[in-house]
């Protein structure tokens, strides 16, 4: 059964949705989608370096993304530029660096499009193994830091004053983000990864009264997005990564339409 490329694609997408849902919620809550996108942009550099120095691309992405994220955070604290300017500069410099490095590798013809927009239909068994092993490890870690991470998300100083290790929690969260980008890259590609994290989470907001339910609904919406997108991709022969993103957008629209009379500051439900 696993020989069928379509089944493998669906399984891969579902595996990613399990981690992308809850992690995407934190990105939405912390208003960090641009930060996440910037980290994702650096992933291509990780891929290129891993080919040049001959180690596993997953490891390359992980290392480069984490270093990159730490660098951005450090610069944002010191710089007099607005933090979105810092992000904008570094996201695109990293992407440009990645493309330039890929160009250096004359002996190896890397399918740039597959890395930028995903090539779910080329997901192999080994990729599936990575998605599920990495995804399971990430989920376990996320569950373990859930409470402190939520506290840090609400108020950093308050969490710190009440004994939560803020820096450590933030570092683990960044590590998780990098890990999910690394394993999701095959599915939707560097440029579209963040949409798979934030669109299902945003769609889940209006129908959730607790953070946990929002995370679970985001997982379900992610799975539906993958199914819809890949189905459409198979039907009309559209590129798989972008099709999943559009599938997610359809889910988002339907979820929003179903809840239109509830603006955020609207009637208090008690």
């Amino acid at each position: 059964m696993l020989d069928d490329f379509f089944i493998r694609a669906v399984l891969g997408g579902i595996g990613v949705a399990f981690v992308a849902g809850p992690l995407g919620c934190f990105i939405v809550w912390q208003r960090m989608s641009y930060f996440g996108a910037a980290i994702a942009h650096s992933a291509l550099l990780g891929v290129a370096l891993s080919f040049i120095f001959d180690f596993a691309p997953l490891l390359g992405i992980l290392v480069v993304s984490v270093l990159f994220a730490l660098g951005i955070v450090g610069l944002q604290r010191r710089s007099d530029l607005a933090s979105d300017t810092v992000l904008g500069i570094f996201a695109h410099v990293a992407l440009a660096l990645g493309v330039v490095f890929v160009g250096f590798m004359e002996t190896l013809r890397l399918d740039l499009m597959a890395y930028l927009f995903g090539d779910l239909l080329a997901v192999g068994r080994l990729d599936l193994l990575w998605i599920y092993l990495g995804g399971a490890a990430s989920l376990v870690l996320l569950v373990r830091i859930w409470r402190p991470l939520l506290a840090v998300t609400v108020h950093e100083d308050l969490a710190a004053a009440e004994g939560i290790a803020v820096e450590r929690t933030r570092l683990l969260y960044t590590l998780l983000l990098a890990a999910v980008i690394a394993i999701a890259m095959k599915i939707v590609g560097i440029l579209l990864i963040i949409s798979l994290l934030i669109i299902p989470a945003a769609a889940a907001r209006n129908i959730s009264r607790t953070p946990e339910r929002m995370a679970i609904v985001a997982v379900l919406f992610g799975i539906i997005s993958v199914a819809v997108g890949l189905g459409a991709s198979l039907q009309w022969d559209t590129p798989s990564g972008p099709s999943i993103v559009l599938g997610a957008f359809v889910v988002f629209l339907l979820a929003r339409l179903g809840n239109l009379p509830k603006p955020i500051s609207g009637s208090k439900s008690r």
Binding site: R31, V154, H155, L158, A202, S208, R209, P211, M214, S265
Partner: peptide
Amino acid sequence: VSVDPTLPL
């Protein structure tokens, strides 16, 4: 303490 409206708490 302003809880972000996207965070259902």
